[in-house]
C-alpha cells in the first residue's frame, strides 16, 4: 500500500455492497469513515470506547465496534451497517419489521446497533431462545431501558411472528 506525501493511505472497502476507494489518514477510525466520509450516519457514536454497542457493524459478517477499529484495519473487507439491512428495494428485514411491530425501540439512538447486533445473532444462531438472545445482546445498551421490547422483537422475528400481535400502540 503506497502512502502519499502527507501520510494518507489508500483504502478499498466494500460498504453495504458498494466498493469504495478512498485516501485517508492512518488514524481515521471506521466510525468516522462511515459517518463523515461516506455519510452513513445510521451508525452512532455513543460511548466511543467499545462498551455501548451504538456503533455495532458487521465486518465480513462478524459483529464489531466501529469505534475501536482503524479504518485501515478493514482493508479489502466487507462492512455492513444498519443502512445495509433492508433489501435494495427498501423492504425491511424481518428484524426491522419486528422492531417496529413489537416496540423494539423508544428514543431510537441505540436501535441501529441493536438491529445490527441482532442480525449477527440470527446469522450465527437462527433459533436462539430468550436466554441466548439476552446473552448475545448484553453488549448493546439502551438508555431508555427498553430491553423487554428489544428481546420481544428479536423473539418475534425468530418465530416468524409478523406485525400486529397486539403490540401496535
Amino acid at each position: 500500500m503506497a502512502a502519499s506525501a502527507d501520510g494518507r493511505l489508500a483504502l478499498r472497502v466494500t460498504v453495504n455492497g458498494t466498493l469504495h476507494e478512498l485516501t485517508i489518514p492512518g488514524s481515521r477510525l471506521l466510525i468516522d469513515l462511515l459517518r463523515d466520509d461516506l455519510g452513513l450516519t445510521g451508525t452512532k457514536k455513543g460511548c466511543a470506547i467499545g462498551v455501548c454497542g451504538a456503533c455495532s457493524v458487521l465486518v465480513d459478517g462478524e459483529l464489531m465496534s466501529a469505534c475501536l477499529l482503524l479504518a485501515l484495519a478493514v482493508q479489502g473487507r466487507s462492512v455492513t451497517t444498519v443502512e445495509g439491512l433492508a433489501a435494495p428495494d427498501g423492504s425491511l428485514s424481518a428484524l426491522q419489521a419486528a422492531f417496529i411491530a413489537h416496540g423494539g425501540f423508544q428514543c431510537g439512538i441505540c436501535t441501529p446497533g441493536q438491529l445490527v447486533a441482532a442480525t449477527a445473532l440470527l446469522a450465527h444462531q437462527p433459533d436462539p431462545d430468550e436466554a441466548e438472545v439476552r446473552a448475545w445482546m448484553t453488549g448493546n445498551l439502551c438508555r431508555c431501558t427498553g430491553y423487554l421490547g428489544i428481546v420481544a422483537s428479536i423473539r418475534a422475528a425468530v418465530i416468524g411472528e409478523g406485525p400486529a400481535a397486539g403490540a401496535g400502540e
Binding site: S27, L70, L72, A73
Partner: peptide, 26 residues
C-alpha cells in the same frame, strides 16, 4: 496493532502517541 480493542482506546486517550502503527492483521 493487533485487534485494537485496547490500543485504539489508548490512542484516543493520548496514552500512546505513535508515529508509526504496524498492523499485524495483514
Amino acid at each position: 496493532l493487533a485487534g485494537g480493542t485496547s490500543f485504539v482506546l489508548l490512542l484516543q486517550q493520548g496514552l500512546v502517541d505513535p508515529g508509526v502503527v504496524v498492523g499485524l492483521s495483514s
